[in-house]
């Protein structure tokens, strides 16, 4: 069965995420970060930040919720049981700091088929409360046996 490509270009509702200090610390601990700018408010302030800094990969926390509706969208048609996370790309802008409010919008960027595999690529664009793009993500999911 060929992949259906009609959903390319489709966007999903923006998702607002309020970055909390303890969530940043929980994330930093879970991935083994030890830089005090992520963990200690005083260290973050001494380094010139208003509050603790989110590690770059914290982008997953504020942007994945915006991408999820696309993965489950019947118009996209991903067979979730056969899906692999094939690749991931992030580009970062200004740092995200506890207290920031991040809005992320996801779009279906590409749907294609090669060698019996379906490639479903989503893009997420995350902006802070000042309208600056803090992260752009490209999420590649591969479905075997399409």
């Amino acid at each position: 069965m060929p992949v259906q490509t009609e959903a390319v270009g489709k966007s999903y509702p923006p998702v607002l995420y309020a970055v909390g200090r303890e969530k940043v610390r929980e994330y930093a601990h879970a991935v083994g970060e030890s830089d005090p700018v992520y963990l200690d408010v005083e260290a973050a302030r001494a380094a010139g930040h208003a509050d603790v800094v989110a590690p770059p990969m914290f982008c997953v926390v504020y942007s994945a919720m915006a991408v999820a509706p696309g993965i489950f969208d019947p118009d996209v048609g991903i067979n979730f049981a056969a899906m692999l996370h094939g690749g991931q790309e992030f580009h970062w802008g200004p740092l995200v700091i506890a207290g920031d409010e991040i809005t992320t919008q996801a779009t279906v960027k590409e749907i294609s088929e090669r060698d019996g595999r379906g490639y479903y690529v989503f893009e997420s664009v995350s902006k802070n409360q000042d309208g600056e793009t803090v992260c752009t993500g490209t999420w590649t999911n591969i479905v075997r046996g399409v």
């Binding site: 770059p56 692999l84 996370h85 094939g86 690749g87 991931q88 790309e89 992030f90 580009h91 970062w92 490209t138």
Partner: peptide
């Protein structure tokens, strides 16, 4: 760190 691209 400006960007990171990986394949799993």
């Amino acid at each position: 760190l400006r960007s990171l691209r990986v394949q799993f």
